[in-house]
């Protein structure tokens, strides 16, 4: 089954992480991607910070969509990147997510969501 792993964090808390610690965790993240290389499918991406986001939103009055500065959600958490994995079951995906190196920082979370299969006999 395919799942998206969404790496989320709290940008306000991220700012407090010392630079050298961040570099160490980056190393751990590379190692993590290498360890699970066989599980990744399709693309994935690391995203620029939410300050760079622009959102196109349906207009309340039903007119043309409006373009606004900022991320779609006002939540404190923001998605910093995502991967797509193809693994036998949820437990395998969760086992990977549990080892996501950034989880040692406060406010970090990984959301695991199955992808809708379009080849299923529905």
């Amino acid at each position: 089954m395919k799942y998206v792993l969404m790496y989320t964090s709290r940008p306000d808390l991220d700012a407090a992480v010392p630079e050298e610690r961040r570099a160490e965790v980056y190393q751990a993240i590379y190692a993590w991607f290498e360890k699970y290389a066989a599980n990744f499918a399709d693309g994935g991406a690391e995203l620029q910070d939410p300050g760079t986001a622009t959102t196109v939103r349906a207009s309340d009055g039903g007119g043309n969509p409006v373009v606004v500065d900022g991320p779609f959600s006002e939540a404190k958490e923001s998605i910093g990147g995502f991967s797509i994995v193809d693994v036998p079951d949820l437990d395998t995906a969760l086992a990977m997510a549990r080892e996501w190196p950034s989880l040692e920082f406060p406010g970090v979370a990984v959301e695991v969501r199955p992808i809708v299969p379009h080849d299923m006999d529905m």
């Binding site: 949820l90 995906a93 086992a95």
Partner: peptide, 13 residues
Amino acid sequence: VEAGIPLAIPTDD
């Protein structure tokens, strides 16, 4: 069904 929760005794954890 949709999240692929295995009906199995886990090996991990």
